[in-house]
Amino acid sequence: MEVSRDWLDVATLKEATGVQRLIAGRVEVLDRLGPINRIAGADVSMKWRDSYGPVHAAIAPLDGQAATATAIPPFPYVPGYLGFREVPVLRLAWERLTVKPDLLIVDGLGQAHPRRAGIASHFGVAVDVPTIGCAKSLLCGEVAGEVGPYPGDRAPIVHKGEVVGIALRMRARAAPIYITIGHRISLASAVDWVLRLSDGRRLPPPIRLAHDAANAARRAFDARS
């Protein structure tokens, strides 16, 4: 599928808001999954509080070498609009993968977003790949009830009366993580896949691999600068 330039390059917040609403309308919340033979994580790294500097993106398969990319993003850091800053660089990394993953776990939110278009949804729609949002904090909504103390315990995330994700305990005594639909997957399946991938730590392996690869790309860039 051809990626619309408008999904990656906007000039104003008003334009970005309109594009997010368009993306939200294209998010598929039911399973449209083929055979899942390759799973990867996606994450970005940047200097703390640097709103205009380079973004270092990584897509890290569980069974292969990570692809990375570094670029000056076309959009500054604005809460709620991270997709326009991070998705263009993630797409560069995506294009460098010889074999594309069948399922992507994105460090960030999907539908748990004021306009239902967090980075996991933004990227999933842009490249038409099944994506799951896996985040360490919430941008909007509240956890309805208590998350039990044991791995696998969960509670819904509700925003404006709508369930937009699941707060999921991955490890006893660790804070929950927040699982959301990105694109082409149901919430139940998203939670199931994250639990299947669990190795007893708070974050699933695809996220940790992508995090390490993105940080390595940033350090390598800094060493050359």
Rank of each mutant, 00 (worst) to 15 (best):
S198P: 11
L203T: 04
P35K: 10
G108V: 06
H159Y: 14
R26T: 01
F123T: 07
H211Y: 04
V10Y: 09
L203K: 00
I179M: 10
A135T: 06
L62T: 03
P88E: 07
L62S: 03
L103Y: 03
K47W: 11
D192F: 15
R49A: 12
V29S: 12
K160D: 01
V99H: 13
A69F: 11
L104T: 05
L13T: 09
A66I: 02
A144H: 15
P151Y: 01
D107K: 00
V27G: 05
E162Q: 13
V10M: 03
I132R: 00
R219F: 09
Q65Y: 13
P205Q: 09
G34T: 04
V163M: 12
V191M: 13
Q65N: 13
A58K: 02
E146Q: 14
P114Q: 11
A213F: 08
N215W: 13
M170S: 06
T17A: 15
A214C: 05
A16P: 11
W94N: 09
G133A: 12
L97C: 02
V89S: 00
M1L: 14
I36W: 08
G80T: 02
V125W: 10
Q111G: 05
R96D: 02
R116Q: 07
P176T: 01
D107V: 05
V87D: 01
V194T: 05
A71H: 00
I59T: 08
